[in-house]
Design a protein around this nucleic acid. Structure first.
Length: 322
DNA sequence: AGGGTACTGGTCTGGTACTC
DNA sequence: GAGTACCAGACCAGTACCCT
């Protein structure tokens, strides 16, 4: 009977080093770069990252030979992930049908990065519709976008905010945003990625907690909701602004909630203007960004005249500075 | 239905530069 | 010089689409 020839490897297996060569001390150990450290901490804070986003994240520190200055190739990214995986620092798995891989830190990875978070298995995050992953992907996209625009901005992740909160029995916790950004000038912004429809009342409560902070939550436990609202007017949370990122239909929904609160005098014009409703998916062009801004200004009743006035003011200030 | 083509995404390979 | 990191590009498999 015909026996096919056994396949021979094209190259011979490596022989032990001749006596003249001493084996390197670090042979077999992966090296660890500043970029690895930065990226793994970033991933740890965000729960996980999808491969396409990791290309952008690693691209902030492209190595030799990278074609672009802000992202690296898929193969280069996978090389890095394979190295982390070999060291047992990350888990890599495809969590969406036909989607790219997701990467998240193992307990060992968390320890190595000095992060005291409890291990979270992203496979268990996956719900039937993949909503959790979609939400996580949105937050990562928003963080990457903000950091690309303002590299000095400091992002505090939802995971970090959650860690600082202790729930006592029977106590409700203040609404936690999906992230907080502190800009170099000290401006603090709460970030919300709103991808699914909330009940109108729930949405109003979230907005008020983000605007008024702990004081409002405390009053809600002491008084009925209406009295709590009346007593809390003028209180201010640590957030200078609240940025809501949402798809078209949800944006309309959030704007209506903002309008209602303003119309029934629960919040002032200044407070309404602290809530900014932005596009998700994020705008791709300058034109879309302008449209995004115009859309929210129109909703707030800031017409072109006001914009023109603001523009002239800004120019005037510029002139004075010069 | 089946063949050709284009596209996408993952893996493999080889070159280069750096570190030890 | 060995070992490693990083990268681009070749290669491959799967899929979608179009045409006959």
């Amino acid at each position: 009977m015909y026996q096919p020839e056994e396949k021979q490897p094209l190259t011979q297996p490596k022989q032990p080093h001749p006596k003249t060569h001493r084996r390197r001390r670090d042979a077999g150990k992966g090296r660890f770069t500043k970029r690895d450290c930065f990226a793994l901490i970033w991933i740890g804070h965000q729960y996980g990252i999808r491969l396409d986003h990791l290309q952008l994240l690693l691209g902030r520190f492209p190595g030799r030979g990278a074609t672009y200055t802000n992202w690296i190739s898929g193969s280069a990214t996978r090389d890095v992930v394979t190295r982390w995986e070999k060291e047992g620092l990350v888990r890599v798995e495809r969590l969406e049908v036909d989607g790219p891989f997701w990467i998240w830190l193992t307990p060992k990875g968390l320890r190595r990065m000095g992060l005291s978070y409890t291990y979270r298995d992203l496979r268990k995050l996956k719900d039937v519709k993949g909503e959790d992953l979609t939400h996580l992907y949105a937050i990562n996209a928003i963080r990457l976008d903000i950091e690309a625009d303002e590299p000095e901005a400091h992002w505090i992740s939802e995971r970090a905010l959650r860690q600082g909160q202790i729930r006592l029995k029977g106590q409700t916790l203040l609404h936690r945003p999906d992230g907080v950004v502190v800009f170099p000038d000290g401006k603090t912004v709460a970030i919300e990625a709103e991808l699914s429809m909330k009940k109108p009342f729930e949405l109003e409560e979230v907005l008020l907690e983000l605007l008024w902070g702990e004081a409002y939550l405390r009053r809600k436990t002491e008084y009925d909701r209406q009295t709590a609202r009346e007593f809390s007017r003028g209180n201010r949370s640590p957030y200078d602004q609240i940025w809501y990122f949402a798809p078209k239909t949800i944006r309309r929904h959030v704007r209506r909630a903002r309008e209602r609160l303003f119309a029934d005098l629960t919040i002032s014009q200044q407070e309404a203007e602290r809530i900014y409703i932005a596009w998700y998916p994020l705008p791709h062009s300058d034109e879309e960004s302008t449209q995004e801004e115009r859309e929210d200004n129109e909703a707030l009743g800031l017409d072109d005249e006001d914009e023109e006035e603001e523009r002239l003011d800004a120019e005037g200030e510029g002139d004075r500075e010069r």
